[in-house]
Write a protein that binds this DNA or RNA. Structure first.
Lengths: 212, 212
DNA sequence: CCTCAGATTCTACACAGCGCCGATTTTTTT
DNA sequence: AAAAAAATCGGCGCTGTGTAGAATCTGAGG
């Protein structure tokens, strides 16, 4: 009932209105950055994109669909950026970890509000939750390989590679979410702490101690 | 404007209606367990507590206030249960970790829906977010002491005790949230994985390898 | 029993914001 | 230029919240 879209039109005809679709997503991200989520009403989005409220429903079936599309676009970019290099079997484990953590942090820096909103509404908007879970699952898969190459026993047991990677990936997500939610975000600190924990788990001492 | 309560009555008069207040919280938790959050309308809560919608606003200023009260009650119990023992300086670090993780898991087992809802709405309802953050902060403080006793350098640097404890506490929260959100929750597995990571961080090998 | 104050309850109203419909205008095709 | 398709708009109806004011219940005095 709630997820039905009886009036969805527009499938893939490469018409002019594609610009509007982009404008809607751009406005949504801008509003997210400026004011946060609560004031972000459909009215406001439409206005920012230069159309009326009713017209917006020509492009997206609901407000949640707009948000979902924006999140999907961002998470796609994240996955592309962060998992390719660590997935390469010749990449040394510690470099793989550093790279994945760094790139993730970068996405939080550049698209903090979108990432934050995605987390905030992952439970409320199931589609967003699914996207997020899928992304973390991709990371988990890649990082499981990294852990194995670092000498952690392969397998599905709760103290073996897959489970550790899973929990550490979620930890990393949380750490950046936390850091990005602070009044004065310090992503660099989060990077250092996360990397340190990953390293300690694979039994590698980082040696770098950067005091505040 | 949104947090104003012009019509709040009832402060602390120990009248009969206290039962109603309890009934409201009890019903709220029941509804949360049975149907989840979205169908949990003020109407439904009031009905379950045996009063009308309007009457509920005599006891709580808003729907969010009801939820917040329920979360506060649950988190109070959690903090009491889980942090006293680890905070004792004579408790060995690994026992402190095991205890804290175990008790936290227990709270998720017994009040999963409330805990889950708290996380889901931490961003949407600031009061709940504050409660949650405060609880994690308490855990962080206690566990920082534990890490120090386990030999981790004391200090505020990103690779020292406080930062590691902070990130690991949030990791633990996420892990249980994840586990509790599965169709078939397996908190035991989450306990094992979390504990393993805490142990690896303090440089202690657990030795127990329990395969699936 | 009657009365009054406070506690508790209810019904009715106003409001915000979403999603949808039908009609109209603009753009593209032939 | 006519027809078809794409895009736009204003307005209606719905759900669910929070509030107001009137009505009822309870219990202590008289």
């Amino acid at each position: 009932m709630a997820t039905e879209q009886t009036t969805r039109r527009r499938r893939d005809t490469p018409r002019k209105g594609d610009l509007r679709e982009q404008a809607i997503l751009r406005t949504t991200e801008e509003l997210l950055e400026r004011d946060g989520v609560e004031p972000m009403t459909v009215e406001a989005i439409a206005k920012g994109a230069g159309i009326s409220r009713g017209s917006l429903y020509f492009y997206f079936g609901s407000k949640q669909e707009v948000l979902t599309a924006l999140v999907a676009r961002t998470l796609d970019a994240l996955t592309r950026d962060a998992t390719v290099f660590p997935d390469d079997e010749t990449t040394p484990p510690h470099q793989a970890i550093e790279h994945a953590v760094d790139r993730t942090a970068d996405m939080w820096r550049r698209h903090g509000p979108v990432m934050r909103t995605a987390v905030d509404y992952a439970a409320v908007i199931p589609e967003i939750g699914d996207l997020w879970t899928a992304t973390v699952a991709t990371f988990t898969k890649v990082m499981t390989g990294v852990l194995v190459r670092a000498g952690i026993p392969e397998g599905d047991g709760p103290t073996e590679a897959a489970a550790l990677a899973h929990t550490l990936c979620w930890m990393t997500e949380r750490a950046f979410y936390q850091a990005a939610s602070q009044p004065v975000p310090d992503l660099t600190r989060a990077i250092t702490t996360c990397t340190e924990i990953w390293f300690r788990v694979i039994g590698h001492r980082s040696g770098t101690s950067s005091g505040g």
